[in-house]
């Protein structure tokens, strides 16, 4: 007998809001969801770049500080000598890009976590992205356009600055 009740009353009401809908504090309403895998990619990138950076930075420090004369060998000509080798150019370029993107993404999540207002968040991120872009572009330009054998206007090598191997050229 119970199943013989008015079928209209059994059906869920259509188009009627739930009793407590619209009651949520607007600050909790999630902004429109964006269908993208960006956050997932960023999360995976952090793990992959982190693992790569451990190797890159450890070898970088080892070669600079432990091999040969150690910390005393580091000067203009030491850096010039390293960058004459394409392997080290590539190594430093990778390190620069991965470290900057890794760090920038880390800062981005920190800003997302700590900034409470959308405007604060937008400003901090704008400053962050701008500074990251400046450093990445500048660093990349330095690695590719680096000129170890500096000359004066007359075309003579600058004494005391140019590394040893420039004299042979």
């Amino acid at each position: 007998m119970a199943t013989q009740a008015n079928p209209e009353a059994v059906l869920p009401a259509q188009g009627i809001e739930a009793p407590r809908s619209g009651r949520i504090d607007p600050k909790y309403l999630r902004s429109r969801t964006s269908r993208s895998n960006f956050e997932m990619m960023a999360w995976v990138f952090m793990r992959v770049s982190g693992a790569a950076l451990v190797v890159l930075i450890f070898v970088h420090l080892w070669v600079n500080l432990m091999v040969g004369d150690g910390i005393h060998q580091i000067d203009f000509s030491f850096v010039a000598g390293k960058w004459a080798n394409p392997v080290w150019q590539f190594w430093d370029l990778t390190m620069l890009w991965l470290a900057m993107l890794h760090g920038t993404n880390g800062m981005r999540t920190i800003i997302n976590d700590y900034a409470e207002k959308d405007s604060t968040r937008a400003w901090l991120k704008a400053i962050l992205y701008l500074s990251a872009a400046v450093i990445i572009i500048l660093g990349t330009m330095v690695i590719f356009t680096f000129e170890p054998c500096l000359t004066d206007e007359a075309g003579n090598l600058l004494e005391g600055v140019a590394p040893e191997f420039c004299h042979g050229v």
Partner: peptide, 14 residues
């Protein structure tokens, strides 16, 4: 999984 792939989903877990 699609719902939780949101930018406010699982990726905000620290």
């Amino acid at each position: 999984l699609e719902v939780l792939n949101d930018k406010e989903g699982v990726w905000r877990c620290r």
